[in-house]
Design a protein around this nucleic acid. Structure first.
Lengths: 251, 251
DNA sequence: CGTAGGGTTGATAGTTTTCAAGTACAGTGG
DNA sequence: CCACTGTACTTGAAAACTATCAACCCTACG
């Protein structure tokens, strides 16, 4: 993996080593990066769905609006993530996506994914893994919403984001920026924003973490992980069992 | 689609028409069907994950056990469904799978999926769509757990199963077998079984549906759908936008 | 006839929401 | 530098929802 590898290439290398030709194929997806500001909309529920995108800088989230005026946040996307994968075979968007911070995304049509299916089994397997990993994160969220109380839910969400951020930046310390309002936490966890506020107060009183503005400071990593019922397994994966490593003339 | 098409072939035909060679490739996955009885375990959390399977008859469900002794049901699988897709790139199972009724499943190693990646772009796209559809169902469940009360949750779950059953059997009427105990409903919806009981009573008093033993009778389909906040979109998909139809010499 | 599993019902306790009022802070324009 | 404004957050009290515990019923089945 060289310095000039793009964000998506670095992301894919988590799964399997890539040959030079595969990197090239992959980078062809990342043509035309577009800068977006915080709060800008990538797409809305009901829009035609013909493309997906990668987010190479900044944060975003996806959500569904509910009839009664509330909404459910479905995913939080970090740099390197692929957005819109699950709508591959759908005509219209079933969830909206909005930037949380300024950032850069690269859009490409669904058709390009099919090109990859035709040209690289390894990249196909990786896309398939990413889809599986997104499913795993969703099932973990299902557990979080179904079987944990507000205290545990909140601890879990913070800890998951902490782990995902550390995968992107291994140097991340125990204090880091987390640009999510309490309302976003509430909409992701199925709580009211008022209760999220009380819950962060409680987490501070328990000396587990401090949230001040958009900064999280983890005070007791081990105990936070334990309170959250967190087990990292669902974020960890590899294709080694399925794919042989590439012989890498041009890695 | 001919009479002798296997269950998985019929299921895949929902997405795109298949050529004879593709059908054959697909059916090679369904070698060695195994009969299982109700309550039999396909695999448990922590088992090595090297294969997936299709369920060609009967019902199953997947679940995660929680430290505190409760559990979360993640999916309910009906005939034709693919089980274990999200663990494709994982070494170990992160959820257990158990039969709800007697049934028949076909196991095959992950490696066979990669073979399909190598040999048919169309089938690859379909597998990818199925993975996307499973994600869509999970996000719908997320909304259900996060933003609906017990009454709406239960209505939604019943209605989703009703729709999925009708896709398998278009002749399905408003009264049908649903082999899920109230405890399973509870574990799927993040409720206590006691409250599920009260909720079904309430649904009956509202003349929406009757649950007697394992039989559901829908009394007011339109109002049930509306109470549930149900919109079928997340179950509907096709690959027509992405893939041309096959020319079908041997369909 | 006895038993076990699943389901129902009532009383009580715990968790979370809602409503309402107030605080803190960043950005703006004077 | 200051007042003004909007957004995010905090706090309290009351209401709504759901869990828990315990007792009981019902039915299939040996």
């Amino acid at each position: 993996m060289s310095e000039k590898d793009s964000c998506i290439v670095r992301h894919f290398c988590h799964y399997s080593q890539l040959g030079a030709d595969e990197k090239e194929l992959l980078m062809s997806l990342e043509k035309g990066p577009v800068s977006l500001s915080a709060h800008e909309v990538l797409w809305e529920e009901g829009d035609l769905a013909g493309e997906l995108c990668t987010i190479s800088a900044g944060w975003a989230y996806s959500y569904r609006n509910i009839d009664d005026g509330s909404r459910q946040v479905l995913d939080v996307f970090l740099p390197g993530d692929v957005i819109g994968l699950r709508e591959f075979a759908f005509t219209r968007r079933l969830s909206g996506v909005v930037m949380l911070t300024d950032g850069v995304v690269c859009r490409f049509p669904h058709r390009n994914i099919v090109d990859i299916f035709e040209r690289s089994t390894r990249l196909t397997s990786i896309f398939f893994s990413i889809s599986g990993r997104q499913q795993m994160m969703l099932t973990e969220r299902l557990v979080n919403l179904g079987r944990r109380n507000a205290f545990e839910k909140t601890a879990h969400m913070v800890f998951e984001l902490y782990c995902r951020l550390k995968r992107i930046d291994p140097d991340l310390g125990l204090s880091f920026e987390l640009p999510l309002s309490q309302q976003i936490f509430a909409d992701a966890l199925g709580l009211s924003s008022v209760h999220v506020s009380r819950t962060f107060t409680e987490l501070r009183e328990e000396n587990l973490l401090i949230r001040d503005r958009n900064r999280i400071t983890i005070l007791d990593e081990k105990r936070l992980e334990s309170v959250a019922g967190f087990s990292e397994g669902y974020l960890e994966e590899s294709l080694q069992s399925v794919l042989p490593e590439a012989d890498l003339p041009g890695a």
